[in-house]
Each structure stands twice: as C-alpha cells, then as structure tokens.
Design a protein around this nucleic acid. Structure first.
Lengths: 148, 148
DNA sequence: CTTTTATTGTTTCCTCGTCAACAATAAAAC
DNA sequence: GTTTTATTGTTGACGAGGAAACAATAAAAG
C-alpha cells in the first residue's frame, strides 16, 4: 500500500482507538453527561463569545445539533446565554460556575489519560515532537486553504 | 498547555477535519451509500472470514449496529454471507461482484484525496515518515497492552 | 458424557444528530 | 432610503447507532 495512505489510515485508527477507550471513562467519571456535552462545554470555555454557528464549526456538528445540545446544557445549568446590545440575532454562551467545575474535572481527566499513556511520549525527542507538529500543522493549513 | 496534550488535541482535530471534508465527497460519489456502509464494505474486503463480532471491533461500533448494517448491505446485494460446515453459530461475510466494484471505486476516491493533499507530503523525508509511523505504532501498541 | 459458562448474532426500545424548512435579523446591493 | 441576499438560531420528521435482553450454539469445567 501507498506509504501516505498507510500513514493516514493508521492515524485515523489511532484516533478512533483513543476515543473509543476514553469515552466510557469520561462518561462514568462525569456521570450524567454525554461525551458530546462534555466536549461542548470544553469548546464554550475555549471560544470567546461562542455562538451556535461557531460551536458547530468547532465541533464538526450541524447547527441544529448544537442548538439542541446548548438547550440541554442550559437546562442542566451548565451554561447560560447572553447577547450584545448591538446585535439582536446572535446568541452567545458562557459557562456557569457549575459548568466551570465540570470543565476542570474534564481537564483533570485528560491529564490522567496522558499519565496513563506517558510511556508513549517518554522517549520522544524534541525533534520528533516538532516533526509531528509540523506535519499536523501543514496538513491543517492545507485543508484550510482548499476549503475556502 | 502541555506539549503532549496539544499534540493529541491537534491530531484529533486533524482527523475530524479530514473526515468532515471527505464525507460528502464520498457519499455523493458513491450515491446511495452511507459513509459507514462504504467503510464496512472496506473492512469486509480486508478481513478474512469477517463476521459481526470482528467487524464490530474493527469499526468501533456495537455488534447490534453491524448486524443491521450487514442486513442492509445484503439487501443492496453488496455482500453475501456464508458459514463453515464445522460451526453453526458464526456467520461470515464476503463481497459480491457489485460490492467489489464499489470497493474499487472507494479506493480510487482515496487515491484522489491523497492527490488533493499531495503537497502536504511532498517535502517529507523518509525519516519524518518513520518518526510519525513509530509514534503511531508505539501508541497503538500501548493501547493494545492496557486493554487486554 | 453432563453441566456450566462464554460467545455468537439478533431484536426492541430509545437517544442523539442530521436534514430541510422556517422566521428573524443583519448585510449587501441598488 | 428600499430591496435583495445571506446568516442566525430553531424546529419536526427521520434515520442511525447504542444498550440491553434474548435464543442458539460453542467451549470449558466437572
């Protein structure tokens, strides 16, 4: 098989395996929350003035899905919405105090995953890190170019 | 942010972006087929004596989902099932002639995606390829270790 | 052999996300 | 300014996939 195709195929498999392995741990640790809800909280914490459209783009989901998810998170008192006086159309989201707590727990869990996998990174040189970072960066930059 | 966490986060994003970009192209080129159906055909082509359980493990889906998907693919005459005389429980799948055609078209599409993205790989040295391959291999090996 | 345990594939119920249409608002064109 | 076009968020119908219970068969234990 083509070397490039092999690389991308294994990369996809790796990501699937990690997701598949972490998902039940995340959902049982953050009981009562779906993985997607948790990840949406993460995005809202990260993106300033997050609205449905931005969250959809960042989550690789449709606006309809985000619209429903945010409603659920508001009902659970994890997030709240607000608007700017100058724009009656766009609706933004931010975390509530409880939402921030969940966010911190989630980050802690991710640290524990890294700890679980620390031996994978142990023997990596700075150069090797850079090589992979450059590859990812180049690919993402390329995708950005061809989609706009 | 931690360098390792950053790396994994960007890696996940990259995979999501690629999937998100390729999906509509695949589904419109292979009209009448879901992405998951196409990928299942791929797995059946790859795995010798593929059955529901093996396909579920390879696809990161439940056996229930695979059971339904294979039924659909049989209805569409893409695959057929068979059994071994020595085992009345396990049911295996293989591609029909039409299924093989779809499989080839799918492979061709993947080649076209690589061509679209060729500039990402153009300036990569063999060493850089190896570095990334080693990283993926090490990670997957680690995951295999801790899950059994 | 007989009994117990594990594995196979299937089905039903239910949740989640997409799709497509929609009204409301903003931006652009004129 | 007015009109047209684009973008925002929402909704309902629909389909896809997961969870769990199930019968059938195989494997293991005794």
């Amino acid at each position: 098989m083509d070397k490039r195709q092999q690389l991308m195929s294994e990369l996809m498999d790796l990501c699937n395996e990690i997701t598949w392995l972490n998902k039940p741990e995340l959902e049982s640790a953050l009981n009562g929350f779906t993985l997607n809800e948790i990840e949406l909280i993460e995005k809202i914490a990260l993106i300033p003035n997050a609205n449905v459209t931005k969250l959809a783009a960042a989550s690789y989901m449709t606006r309809g899905a985000i619209s429903k998810l945010t409603k659920k998170l508001i009902a659970k008192n994890m997030i709240e919405n607000y608007q700017h006086a100058t724009n009656k159309k766009e609706i933004y989201f931010r975390l509530t105090t409880i939402g921030q707590k969940i966010h911190h727990v989630h980050q802690e869990l991710h640290r524990s995953f890294l700890d679980r996998d620390k031996e994978v990174f142990k023997h990596m040189t700075a150069d090797e890190f850079d090589t992979i970072f450059r590859f990812i960066g180049r690919y993402r930059h390329h995708l950005k170019n061809i989609t706009e």
